[in-house]
Design a protein around this nucleic acid. Structure first.
Lengths: 237, 237
DNA sequence: AGAGATGTTGCGGATTCCCGCAATAGTCTT
DNA sequence: AAGACTATTGCGGGAATCCGCAACATCTCT
């Protein structure tokens, strides 16, 4: 079994390798890649189907790499190994994971045992496995009062990119007023109103982005990658 | 010589310790702390004056910890060891570093040799040492056309927190129109106008925050820590 | 099928934002 | 010290945003 490790941090990479040979003795070869772009090449060249990948990397992050890898070889099994439990990563993965392919998400703060468990479960057994910590975070918002639905999330992205209402309406195919309704519920769910509310008036648009960032609903990488999507959309409209 | 290591990542912590004993044989004792709050306690209890500290930590980050440590013991020598070269960190440090005390800033991607050099230079020799990579980043903006001055940076912070013009004016003691002038030059320097300019109209306020984030002028931790400053200001006005 | 809940859209107005124009104050140069 | 620059501030107006009100459209449940 060939396994590809995509990780740009030296120490984490070797730590990962150690855990891997312990947890999965059937490994015959381990290939390393220091960022997402190299990872894609290696996966292509080596016809590799078992991958452990960091999410935060220079150049090209894990989500983007996974997207092209899965596009070329949908049955690839990918275990994401990340520092953060940002909701944006989960949504990003949820959007690109192919039907019935195996993947997992483990935090770097997880114990070595849990990492080894996830390595076996995903790479060998082909299971889906998401770290409990992350699930907790995902759940926390699951009271529908706080959790954003997909269309709200789309509008949040556009807001974060700096589009104004009219453009968002055009891009998402809604009326101006509907966009504003979405924004309204965004302000509600992100806690823009409740906080410093009385007395202090805030710029809700900026505050919404601020809250989305500190609550880990989106992150800076989200801004960067969605920016590219926006640019292509702008060209072909 | 007693040295305190403040670092929440297991691997990095031991790596740091190894480099430390190699580079600084005069070390007699090494104390570990897993986050900023514990670090403050240890520094206080142990009367430690040589510290190596990560910047990104849960709970309480390196800048905040350094602020209280330096407030209590200004001659402390602190080497910051960070993943990122965000401008926000540099500004944060520049604001709190006491007169003629030693500090340094090294990236985690730096070679072991450079780390060891910095350890000696800062902890033993009491020099000031900033990683070349960071300086490069700081310089890049140093064409005054792009680099933010302090008052612009202040306004950027307030904008990022979601304050509206009137409140910023009150907080920073300027007139409304002056705030708007600052915003104008912010939009200019952050590249809000130049990008997608013609055709596409943007919400400049949000776009400014977006640009400030992706250019690493500020980061999410900045949002969190400055939020606390804002809250105290709000109470006592 | 009918009643109620939820989502979408238009209209209008109060507020905020963006910024050109112009007067004044402060700084630098020669 | 006079002239040139730059920063600060007020005024005013066009555009964008926020949001209540109300009319439909859809969906759900019994």
């Amino acid at each position: 079994m060939k396994v590809l490790i995509v990780e740009d941090d030296q120490f984490h990479s070797t730590f990962l390798q150690d855990a891997l040979v312990e947890a999965v003795p059937e490994v015959t070869e381990i290939v390393h890649a220091a960022n997402g772009a190299i990872g894609e090449d290696e996966a292509r060249r080596g016809e590799i189907e078992a991958i452990v990948m960091d999410l935060q990397m220079e150049q090209r992050n894990g989500i983007e790499a996974a997207r092209t890898i899965w596009a070329e070889r949908p049955q690839s099994r990918i275990l994401f190994w990340s520092n953060y439990a940002d909701d944006a990563y989960l949504r990003g993965i949820a959007h690109i994971v192919p039907e019935d392919s195996a993947y997992g998400y483990v935090l770097k703060t997880a114990s070595r045992e849990r990492l080894k468990l996830a390595l076996r479960a995903v790479l060998v057994e082909g299971q889906i496995m998401v770290d409990r910590e992350i699930h907790r975070l995902q759940k926390r918002g699951s009271s529908p009062r706080t959790r954003l639905d997909d269309s709200e999330f789309d509008v949040l992205i556009d807001l974060a990119l700096g589009l104004q209402d009219k453009l968002i309406a055009e891009r998402r195919g809604m009326s101006l007023r509907t966009v504003q309704n979405r924004l309204l519920s965004l302000y509600e769910k992100l806690g823009v109103i409740s906080e410093l509310d009385d007395e202090v008036m805030l710029n809700k648009r900026v505050r919404a982005l601020n809250r989305a960032l500190v609550t880990r609903t989106i992150n800076i990488e989200t801004l960067e990658t969605t920016q590219r999507d926006l640019e292509t959309w702008l060209k072909e409209r």
